[in-house]
């Protein structure tokens, strides 16, 4: 019961507070719009670079909200109240990250799919990429949340978050981009890449909240 109430509150705050889905979405769109200017107008090169650029943009967008995800709670007293709520802090971290994924990061697969078409990928490859981002999104956000919990309230938290989260997110990058490339090349490995992205996301959703809970507990003491 209390977990449901916490999820609804966190989803509402993630959606309404601090720009909500517009923050990561605007960042993601800007990254996808600017990259071709650097890559050049050659359609074949653009299509070949597409999956990598689009997945990498999603990774960077997932780091957008990580700095504030727990720093606000730590500075405004919410963290103490959650710690005394009777729910374990790791459960609070899981609920927060899930709420953020669904309330603020939902545009990512849509943007990825549209971006893929704009980069000249086939419809099949674009759908594979959108599915890859959709399956990788929880993993990306949960790992970013774990790094955000470790860095909450520190100076240069953004740098620390990027250093901790990006290497852990690398497998998601590989599998999501791999799904689209497999669709482009017709290797038949799209499904396998999607399954691996999902498996890695699920593992992150189990492990990252435990780490985030321990980091928040250590922060309180």
């Amino acid at each position: 019961m209390s977990a449901r109430g916490l999820f609804i509150r966190e989803a509402r705050l993630a959606f309404a507070g601090g720009g909500g889905p517009a923050g990561p979405a605007a960042f993601y769109l800007a990254a996808l719009a600017l990259a071709p200017l650097a890559i050049g107008p050659d359609a074949a090169i653009l299509a070949a670079a597409g999956p990598g650029v689009i997945v990498f943009g999603a990774l960077l967008a997932s780091l957008q909200g990580a700095e504030r995800m727990f720093a606000d709670d730590a500075s405004d007293g919410t963290l103490e109240l959650y710690a005394l709520s009777g729910l374990p802090l790791s459960a609070c971290a899981l609920i927060k990250a899930l709420a953020y994924t669904l309330a603020a990061f939902w545009p990512a697969p849509v943007i990825a799919g549209m971006g893929a078409l704009a980069y000249g990928l086939s419809l099949e490859a674009a759908l594979a990429l959108a599915a890859g981002i959709a399956l990788a999104a929880p993993g990306l956000v949960f790992i970013a949340a774990f790094a955000g919990a470790l860095a909450a309230g520190l100076r240069r938290a953004g740098l620390i978050i990027a250093l901790i989260a990006a290497p852990l997110q690398a497998p998601l990058l590989v599998f999501a981009a791999g799904a689209a490339r497999a669709a482009m090349d017709g290797t038949g490995l799209t499904g396998a890449n999607l399954m691996l992205a999902l498996a890695f996301s699920l593992a992150a959703m189990v492990l990252a909240p435990l780490g985030a809970g321990a980091a928040l507990r250590a922060r309180l003491e």
Binding site: L13, A16, G17, D72, S75, D76, G77
Partner: peptide, 8 residues
């Protein structure tokens, strides 16, 4: 600190 969120 009261644990209040500005947007709520």
């Amino acid at each position: 600190a009261e644990g209040l969120k500005p947007a709520e």
